[in-house]
């Protein structure tokens, strides 16, 4: 016996009602389900990479830090990066290299800086793209400037050169302009990244003073007095992580397959063998304190 037309319509209406109720109920619960699944998936890989910038910066240390930052960028499990800085700077090219790597990282993931014992000159330049700078109250921070050192005329050896600037790399005027250009770059970077926070003028920044951490926080050179753990906690909060693991930058680089190529390429070119500092007797340093260079012309000799 076939169902009557009225019974069939009632059944269709019943099914339609059930589907509509299911749609509404599903829509209400969908965000919770999505969040729960996302959280479950993330639980296994929430990582904060802690990358250290330690000691005087050379092109070798810059390569190491840049590779770790590259690995952190490529590794999906790394949700944020904390730069742990204990450096008075070093060569300007090393500082620039790390700065560019930090800048690239900050475009993709939260980057927070933590100053331990010192972040001066090139050490400070390197961390500028960080969205927040934590510092210990007594750490020297700042010293925005460069030092040019060029070789003195040396008549001790007989030599034949191919051009008037072969030995010293240029005239004093040329060197002045190079120092000036790099000074503009450094000060410009500080104003670009921290201009809104700074309570001191561009000219005051260019004086290249070094501030203790507490004063640096007051004048905007840094953001907060805090420890490495404070920096990690803030980085985790910025990445939206409730549970996370902090791992060293070297560990991130080791576990990342993408970085092995970069490391291999570095070994092929042999940066240690072609250390700019040992080849180029003329150096421009982004360094706080005395350089260990032999006697030469210090362009910003002070009284």
């Amino acid at each position: 016996m076939s169902p009557s037309p009225s019974g069939s319509q009632a059944r269709r209406g019943l099914y339609l009602g059930v589907i509509i109720i299911a749609l509404i109920a599903g829509s209400v619960t969908s965000p919770y389900v999505t969040r729960a699944v996302d959280s479950a998936v993330r639980d296994g890989q929430n990582t904060i990479a802690v990358i250290e910038i330690d000691g005087r910066m050379t092109i070798d240390t810059a390569e190491t830090v840049s590779n770790q930052l590259y690995a952190a960028r490529q590794n999906d499990s790394v949700e944020a990066v904390v730069l742990r800085v204990n450096s008075p700077g070093g060569t300007i090219s090393a500082a620039e290299s790390v700065y560019m790597a930090v800048n690239a990282t900050a475009r993709q993931k939260p980057v927070v800086a933590s100053v331990g014992s010192i972040a001066a000159s090139g050490g400070y330049f390197s961390l500028l793209p960080a969205e927040r700078i934590y510092t210990t109250p007594g750490a020297p921070v700042g010293n925005v400037g460069v030092i040019g050192v060029r070789p003195a005329e040396d008549g001790a050896e007989e030599r034949i050169v191919s051009g008037p600037d072969k030995i010293r790399g240029g005239t004093k005027d040329d060197f002045r302009r190079q120092v000036q250009s790099l000074q503009r770059e450094f000060v410009g970077a500080v104003m670009f990244h921290r201009g809104d926070e700074l309570m001191i003028s561009q000219a005051q920044v260019a004086h290249a003073k070094v501030y203790i951490g507490a004063r640096a926080v007051q004048n905007g050179i840094a953001d907060r007095v805090g420890s490495l753990h404070d920096a990690i906690a803030y980085a985790a909060a910025r990445a939206g992580l409730e549970r996370y693991t902090a791992v060293s930058g070297s560990a991130v680089a080791r576990t990342s397959s993408t970085v092995s190529f970069a490391v291999a390429a570095q070994n092929e070119t042999g940066p240690a063998a072609l250390d700019a500092a040992t080849v180029d007797r003329r150096r421009i340093l982004a360094l706080y304190g005395q350089s260990d260079t032999p006697a030469g012309v210090v362009t910003n000799a002070t009284g």
Binding site: V18, I19, A22, L23, G26, S27, T29, S30, V33
Partner: peptide, 15 residues
């Protein structure tokens, strides 16, 4: 069964 299928489909659609 219809309710369960539709509810489950909509719930996990976000994921």
């Amino acid at each position: 069964a219809v309710f369960a299928i539709v509810f489950a489909a909509v719930s996990v659609s976000g994921v």
